[in-house]
Amino acid sequence: MKSDVSALELRGLTKRFDRLAVDALDLTVRTGEFYALLGPNGAGKTTTLRMVAGLLRPDAGSVSVLGIDALADPVTAKQVTAWVSDEPMVYDKLTPLEYLAFVAGLWGIDPAVSERSAHDLLVSLSLEPHLHERCEGFSKGMRQKVALAGALVHDPRLIILDEPLTGLDAVSARHVKGLLCDRVRSGCTVIMTTHILEVAERMADRIGVIASGRLVAEGTLTELRQQDGRNDTSLEDMFIALVDTEAAAA
């Protein structure tokens, strides 16, 4: 289910720490799209997504989430957005069910809806035997699954994931990918950073490559190949070539 309405629109987004992390970035992600944001370490991917999620305030530029000005009205924008970081942050002393109930409470979701949804999500992520155990003994992969379930329990329309597959085993990774694809099919938008290029190649509708805080290439896999001038090249080869070119230019 694709739409011409933008799920995310960034205009001139800029953030500087010690150096320029995001450099007047323009980016548009359409509703119902699976968008993969790629880039080398330190390219500005996470900083960009943290600004979209409302975790960082940009120095300049605008962020529009489903038509909502996220800088002027962050609470409304957050209501429809979910954020999952690469470092799963869950409460050690809560059980997965309690964690999801807390998230649902924060998003003001009807308990009758969220309880069933929480249970189903945790079961689909193979966490059923651990529903009533505290998270303190969980592995990183299990914590990542709890955090992901937390992000999905309030039925967001824009899901932002920063390296969500880190630490997951093959079976769990497949579950997560399946869940995300289901969400996209139901009209949700997913923006994901990943270093696993195969995942981007297989799952993403469109791919954006970011380097030195700027978008250096964007399009479907076919469009990227056309930009590269070769039809048989892999995403990995294109990515490395783009990043090398950008590094040489810098």
């Binding site: 999620a53 957050k78 979910a82 942050m89 869950v90 998230v103 924060l106 998003w107």
Partner: peptide, 10 residues
């Protein structure tokens, strides 16, 4: 312990 969660909540 979950600052991102609380910060991204509406």
């Amino acid at each position: 312990d979950a600052p991102d969660l609380v910060a991204t909540a509406p």
